[in-house]
Design a protein around this nucleic acid. Sequence first.
RNA 1: GCAGGGGUACCCGAGUGGUCAAAGGGGCUGGGUUUAGGUCCCAGUGCGUAGUGCUUCGCAGGUUCAAAUCCUGUCCCCUGCACCA
Length: 950
Amino acid sequence: MEYDMHQIEEYWQQKWKDESIFSVYTDPKKPKFYCLEMFPYPSGNMHMGHVRNYSIGDAMARFQRLMGKNVLYPMGYDSFGMPAENAAKKEGGHPHYVTERNIAMIRKDQERMGYSYDWNRTFATSTPEYYRWNQEIFIKFYEAGLVERRFAPVNWCVDCDTVLANEQVKNNRCWRCGLEVIQKDMAQWFLRMTQYADELLDELENIDFPENVKAMQRNWIGRSQGAHIDFPVDGEDSVIGAFTTRPDTIFGVTFVTLSPEHPLCESLVSGTEYEEGWRNLRDECAKMSEFERINMLKEKKGVPLGRFAINPLNGDRVPIYAGNFVVASYGTGAVMAVPGHDQRDYDFAKKYNLPIKPVLSRNSNDEAIEQNPVFDSLGYMRNSSRDGFDGLFGNEAKTEVINLLEKEGSGYGTVQYRLKDWLLSRQRFWGTPIPMLHCESCGVVPVPYSDLPVKLPLDIKFSWDESGNPLATNNDFLKANCPKCGESAKRETDTMDTFYDSSWYFFRYADSGNLNNPFNKEIADYWMKDGVDLYIGGIEHAVMHLLYARFFTKAMRDIGMNSIGEPFGQLVCQGMLNAPAPFCNECNIEFHVDKNGGKCPTCDSPLGNRQAKMSKSLGNTVSPGAMVEEYGADTVRLFILYGANPEAGMDWSDNAIISNHKQMQSIIDAFKSSRLFTDSPSIVDSWLLSKMRMNHAKWQSAMENVSLREGVMISHFEMLSDWQWYRRRGGSDRKTVEIFFRHWIPMMAPATPHIAEEFWSKIGGQGMVSEYVIEDVTKLEDDIIHIAKEEYLRDLIDSSRNVKGLASRHSEISLSKCIIQTSPKWKNDIAIKALSLSNENFDFKKNGMNYVKSLEIFDVEKLRGEVIQTWQSFTIGNKKNRGKVYTWTEAEKSLINLRFNESKFVNDNAEFIANALSIASVSSYDVGEGDDVAGKARVSSPLNPGIAFI
RNA sequence: GCAGGGGUACCCGAGUGGUCAAAGGGGCUGGGUUUAGGUCCCAGUGCGUAGUGCUUCGCAGGUUCAAAUCCUGUCCCCUGCACCA
């Protein structure tokens, strides 16, 4: 058929738009379904990763509409961020215009794919209409005590006079001027996310996230149970507080290590011979970026500080060191070192010749011994300096030590987190201005709600010559009056991390037109009940975005803005998209596609090809626009969904998309040919409809489980092959195929909505299929029988083919006739008896033999052997297979119980079978009703006839 | 090192105790339609066999009447975190 996908697709896209069929409203009478894809940053055209994300989401949104749900399926843009600012500098423009242009581009691409968004709800975060609510929520958080301003180290470039984000620091140098970056303390804004650390961690148990995401979040929060122990410094008033998860090793402490940045270091060493060593170590660590610190893992370095600490439980006097492996920001920045049971401490002790004192044993009657690698699991306490501890194990040991510490006031049990408060402020322009004022006399004062939004100025020229944040030098922006005292005040120039914008945007979608509030509570509660029902996006947001959004939801709940605590019900992380890239086997390196067919630059061996993650740097990306141009949106969507289940990685292949396009053509051909049918009923009609009902049920449950590949396999592949079998079997009844297509077309709609819509209009379906609700497709009782009979025919042809091949090797003459001896009546009879006994849990092993001997047929002497054999194979089976009563399918059991007349069925379909076997004729009779050709009578049993060729 | 996920036929990939020599697709082989090719349709694709047997699901053991599926050990791959005390 002539398939003008562009014409069809654009026609229906326009129609959907004109009739606003995807606009939704709260409706308490209907179950809701909130389908959401991760907020895109508009960087220009849509890429394949987006296509995959949205094709999954759209298929689910459309499916849930078919299921009668009230589906909220919105789209918008996370449009603040540095790339726009940099692009503006490059062009000498303003990020605002760069952003608007990019949004227009991606939106056009999205519309051409036919995604069923409710575009009425769309917004971009970089507009004052959105970010004013960022500011309002910020002030509410401030009032609730969740906002804090304190000093924190940032990456600072002296030359450029600006703060650098981590990704702007390469090899510890500024990406722009190449100067070495330093760590500098600056006043920063924080959100006190750690207040929610426990809830964020504990609630993970109850939410439907993939295991790896949960694991990453657990890891990130990093809760550890332990003790805080105070080590007084010998001869001074100061105290070193150390956190440990292993208080049970307290008696094995032989030194104490401080992070080089620890404030105590300086006072301990100042004016001593140790000062210089410490300064060197500290400066070295201060310069190191995160990246370098990881690379330095292997080399543990430390310097003595020349002072000693006192172990509070036994009075031991142990030296104090500064060590590069102690992280200042975790715990207290001080560690009690137990070289007997901690590998790092052991390595350090060996290097600096410090004593090692083992205090745990593996078994209850062992001695504690020094080992390398050290024994660091839970063990039995040994060599304790205090009475009552030796022999205590694991958690009991820890608890007892903590009890003693608490009793003597030298420590307490406590919990530490790896999670830190959210450093929210960025010294950048293109973000939400933090709505705060600095007043000389009143200090930090929030902007009054009535003065919101604090808008970003539009009259700023961007260029590479300007360094730093343009807000900091813009007097119009800076000037303000203090709302408390009325004196002039200075506006805060920091803007918010853009993760802030995406931490609550899904609430805004629920009520995006609201001019008075971020969102109305009742409306948000309706859509957000049990969270977003399906949230689809990339694994790269496993910790940052997904954790921030969870935190926000809880924090907003606690200030009364909404009712739920977890924003996302089910999370699906889509897999990677791969495409072939040149690859050197020798060097194990992938190259840019412009090296295709060339040689490896390093080793000069010829380059092969292998699948690699689609990326700009490899150039192995595929442009969605070009693919849509060539094959149409439906084919691209089908390919994406059929290529792999959402979570799995997926390989791009030109062949595969072509073959999916062919599949579309075949479906269209099937549809077209069906339009010409007249009323001509046949025996396969009921089979087709039975099969359709069965497939419908399978499809529905696959789709409900977001097993889109399986769903599409049924809707776009199995349905077509059923159609083809129907045609092959001579089916061509108008009424039958009308029903068939009326059910099939909605099944096509989630993956390929345009062609479904086109078909739907052709068959005169009600309204548009995009707003159709599937009526219950209940299976009929007879379905199983219709399917079983056709299955019998297929199996029969299969085995006949097999036997024919064998037969022809044994026969001189060419075979022209197939004789099928169906099971003798008596075998059917005992099969039915066996089935009914098995329903009554008859003990075949114990009583089966007696039973079979009581049967009438057993009296026929020449059959006795066969009767027993048949009985055994039905009931007990052999070593490898259980009795057939257990292995017959429900459908087969029904056929047997109904005394399905096999020979009549075969004779009725003789011509078809003969054609399939390329043989002149097929005839069938029950064993005994004709000659026993080729001695096949004996192998014949119910549903398993003896097949012979002559 | 810790955590999470994997290893199924030529390739991708479904399959969590019997109905499994193992869905579906791709590739390859043969046949038909057609014939300039292609599309399309049918069949085959571990070995064997006038049939329903044999061997196979990373490797080695074990449980069971029965194992791709459960248990133990082991090797390998991917992903994330990582001097986190």
